[in-house]
Computed example of a mutant assay.
Amino acid sequence: MTQRGGGNAGSERVRIQDVAAAAGVSVSAVSKVLRGAYGVSPQMRNRVTAAIEELGYRPHTGARAMRGRTYTIGVVLVELASPFQTEVAQGISDELDNTPYQDIIVTAGTSPKRQKASIEALLDRQVDGLVLVAPWLDTTWIEEIAKTVPVVTVALHGSPTTFDSVVDDERLGARLMVDHLVTAGHRRIVHTSMPPGESEGVFVLSHTARRQGFEQAMRHHGLEPDIIETWYSEEGGHRAALEAFARPEPPTAIFAGADVAALGVLRAAEEQGLRVPEDVSVAGYDNIYISTIRRVSLTTVDQSGHRTGEKCARLLLERIGGRTEPKQFVVAPKLVTRRTSGPPPGGAEA
């Protein structure tokens, strides 16, 4: 009986030489696959991975430490309550599934102090790489960390010199949504956003990029941007919507900065006796799974959290394998129109 991760029961531990022989390749080729070395062909990786699975080979912990590899990847999220971030984490995990690497997921909130402490704890455990999802950190600190361990960031817009990044074209995504709503006839459009990060400047987080895209698109249409700052949560969207609905002239459309906030807007609309989309149109951003459910059917912008996670893992493995030049992967946003958006009450506004 084969024991996964421990070789055959009652026999010696499976060695890297055994994997090489089973795959019909050299020991160095197996080592390259284990290290996620840059430039390994898919055919070679598949052959070695198949041999590893068949033999139940796992790199020896002591040997890994001695040669500087722990085969662990640290993934730092803001919170598990964010559906998009958990989709990113799932994408990373799935992409690492056929490699010897294991992901360690931690949540660190938006406090820079807490985020640094979480990252340093992972570094103390000698992770081979880091994925930082929406880091609320000074980018100079991230640049310094990336000089010692491979780093990939998600939702951090800028031009890094020592780390890789995966971003959605948030400004374009926001413009697509504004164009959709304006074309439907809306003029009073509210956007819910979050406060800027403490260290935002040359680099900005995704919510700031979306806000900038909204402002630019509204002005392009000759309209004044209307923004309510809240948090990307169901409760945050609910509070922002109640504030908007209490105005003498309430908006005819609310474009929430994230789908999870749009769910709060939908709850507020129902509490106020407003029909969606007949009385108010509601839209979000991210295209999380719950948005696709027929009962919700939320108009949104798709940026594929799972695909984002997969790309993060690939970039990180390339870095671990020896690539040194920084890369930025940009996810192209796509407008997804569903049942929560339509023309304003009475047709197009003047």
Rank of each mutant, 00 (worst) to 15 (best):
V152D: 07
T140G: 14
A121V: 02
L122Y: 00
S118A: 15
T153F: 05
L122C: 01
L123E: 00
D128Y: 00
A121Q: 05
G158Q: 11
P135D: 03
I142N: 11
H157P: 08
V133C: 07
L132G: 03
L137A: 14
I142A: 11
I145T: 15
I142Q: 10
P150S: 14
V154H: 10
D128E: 03
R125S: 05
T139H: 14
A134S: 15
L130M: 07
L123W: 02
T139G: 09
T153W: 05
E120V: 07
E120M: 09
I119W: 02
E144F: 08
T153P: 02
T140M: 12
I142K: 11
A134W: 08
I145N: 11
W141V: 05
G129M: 07
V154T: 11
V131R: 01
K147S: 15
V131G: 03
V149Y: 09
A117T: 00
A134C: 15
L132N: 00
A155Y: 13
D138P: 08
V151F: 08
T140C: 12
V149S: 08
G158P: 11
E144A: 15
I119H: 04
Q126R: 14
A134H: 14
G129Q: 12
I119K: 00
A134K: 13
A155P: 04
V151T: 07
L130H: 03
G129C: 12
T140H: 14
V151G: 03
W136I: 01
S118C: 02
L122M: 05
I145G: 10
I142W: 09
V149L: 09
I145Q: 12
A117R: 07
A134Y: 13
L122D: 01
P135K: 01
L122F: 01
T140R: 15
W136N: 12
V152K: 05
V131H: 05
R125I: 06
L130C: 04
I145E: 13
L156Q: 13
L130A: 01
V152R: 06
I145R: 12
A155V: 04
T153S: 06
D138V: 03
A117P: 00
D124N: 07
G129V: 07
P135R: 02
L123A: 04
D128L: 06
T139E: 12
W136K: 05
T148Q: 12
D128C: 10
V133K: 04
W136D: 13
V127G: 10
W136R: 09
D124G: 08
K147D: 13
V133P: 10
D138S: 07
V154Q: 07
P135A: 03
T148V: 06
E144G: 12
T148D: 13
A117S: 02
G158A: 13
G129A: 07
K147T: 15
Q126P: 00
V149P: 08
A121C: 03
I145V: 15
T148L: 12
E120A: 09
W141Y: 13
H157D: 03
L132W: 02
V151D: 03
A146C: 05
T148H: 14
A155K: 11
L137C: 14
W136S: 08
T148R: 15
G129E: 07
L132P: 00
D138N: 12
T139W: 10
L156N: 07
T140E: 15
A146G: 02
E143S: 12
V127Y: 10
V131N: 03
